[in-house]
Design a protein around this nucleic acid. Structure first.
Lengths: 273, 273
DNA sequence: TGAATAGTGTCTGTGAGACAATATTAT
DNA sequence: ATAATATTGTCTCACAGACACTATTCA
């Protein structure tokens, strides 16, 4: 049948023509946690951490997964992500960016479900006991070589690790293609989401200012350096770090005292150049 | 109802519980085209170009759009992209990476349709008259300032331009959020896809080797430099460019002669370090 | 010969890496 | 005084920007 106008066409459009599927928004909530130190003189050490939720229902009952949920037909995946984030942390105004869309055929045993994943960055100090019961921060220890990424998760009560393999498809697709090598405790293909997010964050921390979304309003350069170090997984030299960061931060009158050492100046993020 | 095992749960799962939607794969096929020169002595000048398809049907009948199509329920969006690409160019083995998922509620007037977009890079020499009838390469002229991107499309017969505005959402989302300011001839939200792809390519060309996917097997450094220049939208200094690129290319015995000037050595891509 | 591009040499300033040195606090 | 971190100084080396210069071809 031929239509003369778009209006006419739309009125007669049969929306059931193509098969449909469900979509979820899954959110990688990254943060940096403080581990208090035995020795009063030492700085509290920092850990790169991710928020996981224990599944109460099938599928993958009792396994850990990223906070997520089905997208409503009347909201965008970003809106769904914000809703879930709000639900999980009771916070709005969190840094959020779309990460990747995962849609391998059998990633969900129930049926074909596509996942649009988002990455959120948060300063853990903003949420004080606001977590829901099933949610828990896991510190990540990341070991990476050319072939694999090995991540150990630890929330204080439970420890487990996953291994994700990297294949580099020379020309035809993304630089790295990930596949799960070992995984007992994480649901779905979430190890792939986590590894993708880590890669993204590692890259972006070098050429953007996103790191400040994980920082409180006032912080010392030592703390900021520690955050860089746990995310990049390597130590940085103090003078070099200070030079690079100098244009992005503003000195304040405040100081942090109390450690058994010279007090440090508190800085704030200075947006723009 | 409570289930004891995952198997039992899955057997009884009602997959119609959540509303569903359709998904398309849309592909941004970028290339660099040669404009032959009047003066025999001059090099042919290059243009950054994108493949567009004229819509034969509603919606957006007679407008131009990115090659794309509905994803089958039994294939992934990447597989769909490859299928569409094969269909459009008759080529396999094309560089392809997932770009972004666009899912604003009313992006398609028919119904809720989510688009997973891919970016493909291709050497135009690989396809000789292989294009389908409705497809056409458009050279892009890109003017960008802090607030807007203005792109003029030209396929030899037709010229039009679109304007996309940039908003930078300080903390809560991606660095830039795009919105269409002016658009007459492109269908759907495809101006946003194109701008996102250009941003991605501009970034990646600096820290990856993807540019070689747009080059033939043998090329001169002058040609390669021209490709960088049209994509980055700025001129580069010869010695600096040669220094940077040196480790990525391999000199051959071949030469390109025939221009009214010194012949140039042909190089090949040298993968790895 | 001259127009046009190919290709090289080299100076200079910037900025990162490395290491050393100094400063300041709580016990 | 000492452990621990904070903060600065400075040397060196690599490298990007800039510009000048040489090389080679074909009508």
């Amino acid at each position: 049948m031929e239509y003369k106008t778009e209006k006419e066409f739309l009125k007669n459009y049969d929306s059931s023509k193509f098969e449909k599927l469900s979509v979820t928004s899954d959110i990688l909530i990254f943060s940096v946690s403080n581990k208090t130190q035995e020795n009063y003189r030492k700085l509290s050490s920092k850990h790169f951490s991710v928020l996981l939720v224990k599944r109460n229902d099938f599928p993958f009952k009792n396994k850990w997964c990223l906070p997520g949920g089905f997208m409503d037909i009347k909201e965008t995946s970003l809106e769904a992500a914000k809703r879930i984030l709000k639900n999980e942390t009771n916070l709005s105004n969190i840094y959020l960016e779309q990460l990747y869309t995962f849609d391998s055929i059998n990633r969900d045993p129930r049926m074909r479900i596509m996942s649009v994943s988002y990455m959120a960055l948060i300063d853990q100090n903003r949420l004080l006991n606001k977590l829901t019961e099933e949610a828990s921060w896991f510190d990540m220890t990341i070991l990476e070589d050319e072939k694999e990424v090995n991540i150990t998760f630890d929330n204080g009560n439970e420890t487990f690790s996953v291994v994700v393999g990297k294949t580099l498809r020379e020309q035809t697709t993304d630089r790295y293609e990930f596949h799960i090598v070992k995984n007992d405790r994480l649901a779905f293909d979430h190890p792939l989401v986590i590894v993708s997010g880590i890669e993204r964050l590692k890259n972006k921390i070098e050429y953007t200012d996103i790191v400040f979304n994980m920082m409180p309003e006032y912080f010392t350069l030592g703390e900021l350096q520690q955050v860089y170090e746990v995310i990049l997984g390597k130590e940085l030299l103090d003078p070099a770090f200070r030079r690079i960061i100098a244009s992005k931060v503003e000195k304040t009158q405040k100081q942090r005292t109390g450690g058994g050492h010279r007090p440090s100046v508190l800085y704030t993020y200075r947006s723009k150049k």
